[in-house]
Nucleic acid binder design. Structure first.
Length: 528
RNA sequence: GUUCCCAUCGUCUAGAGGCCUAGGACACCAGGUUUUCAUCCUGGUAACAGGGGUUCGAAUCCCCUUGGGAAUGCCA
């Protein structure tokens, strides 16, 4: 099957979830269709593209298992091809210098006036536009400029390409024909140095045409040609602009399916013409809705909490992160959510891609991550957290045997590896008490029972969780405390916090001597 | 301003004119299990933006309104 999709990020900053979601969709779609997934680094913005950003990009893709086919293309290596394409367009009359003859004139792509035969152009109908009085209509090689009076009575200026105005006729208020645009007058306009200005123009008529294409996500999309301007493809410093580079590279890489963000829809209307005039088949497009942050705004490089690399640092599993992101703007069409990579590939078609923006929900990601952690083999979980915990001081005095037991106990309670930060109390007796929990549970009767418990533990011979349980029951009975009510006070003594593993198991891991010390330390601590 | 796009629980979503008394998930609330914590189980609150059409029948099709987003760069 001839299917090539690509991911074409510009390495101007750390890759964020919006970017990588696009990569994931491209990847899934490609793998589903059995095509090739290509990578192109759009590094033409020399000012802002950095080596670090490129490295981070590769790193994130590797972490997420986004493998690509072939060698990545660096856009900067293609500038020769871009200039050659511009030269060809110029030669064919599809591009022109804004200021002919001048030294550093930018080059513009001309939307072709003669485009009725293009498969993505169709005629809409005849249109009459009344221009604002006292404002001229001017026409030049760059297009038409005019003003209208809007419904609020304000005069607003508009401009569009010549191709937007097939059979244009400009009239004065007394219906005198001022100018006709057609095959005969067109070359004169294109060649003229200065624009033609019609001071007394009152209205003009033309045949409206529109550009349209069928988007795999959004369906048919269209836009009138008289709302599009010619676009700069070569800057005055002779460097190629995105529009040209992007199209050329897609041609060079043989891309057949372009899956990208919503924000490119407007570009697509213009890129279609570049493909066509360059003599290439236009690719199939799919525009994904944007990902928005908690404020409902599209993710940008300013959203500091949205960098892909940070999710690894926060202790998320790549599979969970991948799974969650695949569900943002897409669903398999049934009630499945937790899906492995193979299931995602099999189910992934653009039919079920959403048309509206999706909001990223950290809480749901956490939940999904917890699901993935819960099903990890215990040994794998233990090793992963051990490695992750290298960043915390408590690991330096943690022995692996104890850690093994802790990990076993904590796995079902862990949402992200970051949760293990609180495991420090297993390895140090110098922890802080949570003031709220401490005051809640360290009441007078609890203190008395705990004092008793410490004494009971002194004489306890067993070391199993059940032995601790028995000792606690004894202390409760001795002080007429309801069965089980000493659990939380003891937990505070042993861990400083109110949540954790089962308290008997926790005590077993800590050992009798440490438990006694911890209880006495807590008893010496004043309520706040 | 102009053009384009979008609109189902708080959030992610199912929904292709009758299967909808609108389903699932997260979150939240209430119970249960665990003598404790977490997991887990059961139940609950909660949505078709508004108004017109078309139709025997509309969340679904059309129009308008409102709201949101994008483009309108010699950024990509």
């Amino acid at each position: 099957m001839d299917f090539k999709a690509r991911f074409a990020p510009s390495p101007t900053g750390k890759v964020h979830i919006g970017n990588i979601r696009t990569a994931i969709f491209n990847w899934l779609y490609t793998r589903h269709c059995g095509g090739e997934f290509l990578l192109r680094i759009e590094d033409t913005d020399l000012e802002r593209s950095t080596k670090q950003a490129i490295d981070a990009l590769y790193d994130c893709m590797k972490w997420l298992g986004l493998d690509y086919d072939g060698t990545p293309m660096y856009q900067t290596t293609q500038s020769g091809a871009h200039r050659e394409a511009a030269r060809k367009l110029m030669e064919a009359g599809h591009a022109y210098e804004l200021n002919p003859g001048e030294e550093n004139s930018p080059v513009l792509f001309r939307l072709p006036y003669d485009c009725d035969s293009f498969p993505f152009v169709r005629t809409v109908g005849d249109v009459k536009i009344e221009t604002a009085p006292e404002t001229p209509v001017s026409i030049s090689r760059a297009g038409l400029v005019w003003s209208i009076v809007n419904h609020k009575g304000k005069t607003v200026e508009s401009a569009a390409c010549l191709a937007g105005f097939k059979d244009l006729q400009i009239y004065a208020a007394d219906n005198t024909l001022l100018f006709s645009l057609n095959e005969e007058t067109l070359p004169g306009i294109a060649a003229a140095k200065d624009p033609m200005v019609f001071e007394n123009a009152a209205y003009f008529t033309f045949t409206r045409r529109e550009v349209f294409f069928v988007d795999l996500v959004k369906g048919e999309l269209s836009k009138p040609l008289d709302s599009i301007k010619d676009l700069i493809i070569i800057r005055s410093d002779s460097s190629p602009v995105f529009h040209l580079a992007n199209v050329c590279d897609d041609v060079t890489q043989g891309v057949t399916h372009i899956v990208r963000g919503d924000d490119h829809v407007e570009n697509t209307f213009r890129h279609l013409f570049i493909f066509q005039t360059l003599g290439f088949k236009v690719p199939t497009y799919a525009h994904l809705p944007m990902l928005v942050n908690a404020a409902g705004k599209p993710y940008s490089k300013r959203d500091g909490d949205a960098f892909v690399g940070d999710f690894r640092e926060k202790g998320f599993l790549p599979e969970a992160f991948f799974n969650y992101l695949s569900l943002l703007g897409w669903s398999p069409g049934d009630n499945r959510e937790k899906m492995n990579r193979q299931e995602l590939i099999e189910a992934f078609t653009l039919e079920h891609a959403q048309r509206s923006p999706a909001q990223f929900d950290m809480v749901k990601l956490m939940n999904m991550n917890g699901l993935y952690i819960a099903e990890m083999p215990q040994a794998e979980f233990e090793q992963a957290v051990w490695d992750f915990a290298a960043r915390w001081e408590w690991r330096t005095n943690a022995d692996r045997a104890t850690f093994h037991k802790v990990a076993e106990l904590m796995q079902s309670r862990t949402k992200t590896y970051m949760d293990a930060q609180t495991w420090s109390y297993f390895f140090s007796e110098e922890f802080e008490f949570d003031p709220k929990g401490f005051n809640k549970f360290m009441k007078e009767d609890a203190r008395a029972a705990l004092t008793e418990l410490a004494a009971i533990l002194e004489n306890m011979t067993g070391t199993a969780a059940t032995d601790f349980e028995e000792a606690i029951r004894k202390a409760e009975t001795a002080h007429t405390i309801a069965q089980g009510k000493l659990n939380q006070p003891l937990r505070i003594c042993l861990t400083g916090i109110t949540v954790g593993a089962g308290v008997y198991e926790t005590a077993e891991i800590l050992g009798k001597e440490s438990c006694i010390r911890r209880i006495r330390r807590a008893l010496a601590h004043e309520n706040g």
